[in-house]
Amino acid sequence: MWNSETILMLAENTGITLYMTLLSTLMAYVLGLPLGIALVVTAKDGLRPNAVVYKTLDVIVNIIRSVPFLILLILVIPLTRLIVGRSYGAAATVVPLVIAAAPFIARLVESSLLEVDKGVIEAAQSMGAGLGTIIVKVLLAEARTSLIVGATIALGTILGYSAMAGVVGGGGLGDIAIRYGYYRYESDIMWVTVILLVLLVQILQVIGTRISRKLDKRSR
């Protein structure tokens, strides 16, 4: 069974997994980053406190976060069909992945931004900085190390979620593991996919840690 076909299939699906993970993370950040910023800004002691907006976002984030991914995957199938045109395959998996990851990322961004020293924000205000400047040049810039650590965590989590997509025929390494390992009892192929997944997480983690350390000017 270890012919070139199997190896080609594994390589192809490693690529699919990476594609799903990276694309979903990127798109989830497009939603999650502004959401996280909005949570920090509208919070009670934020730059523009707004109880209504904060509570609404907070509840939405919590609701989506409390739905197990496997259930969410099935729940959003109508939406996936609407956007992608079909409910299976790698592209179709991206939709539930983004929906599940965005609120998670919003929380990661929120906690990173809350780490920024209040005094520095106050200093920027005292210089006459507006909201946009403070968000971009103080909050995001000062929290960049923490944000990258957060992104690394997000990538790892989304990679794990993407493997679950195999259940609905989502493609990628998770799909292979389920098809060969669970339905066909070819556990050696399943093990290979597991090892590949572990390796992927490791590589992403190492890259993330490197970048964040390189960018951190606080301790040297």
């Binding site: 520095v120 200093a123 005292s126 210089m127 006459g128 000017k217």
Partner: peptide, 21 residues
């Protein structure tokens, strides 16, 4: 905000941007 540019402030804990030189 424009007026604040005329009123500078320094702090007990300096409040510098740690990620900028």
């Amino acid at each position: 905000r424009r007026t604040r540019t005329e009123i500078a402030m320094i702090f007990q804990h300096f409040n510098l941007l740690m990620q900028r030189n």
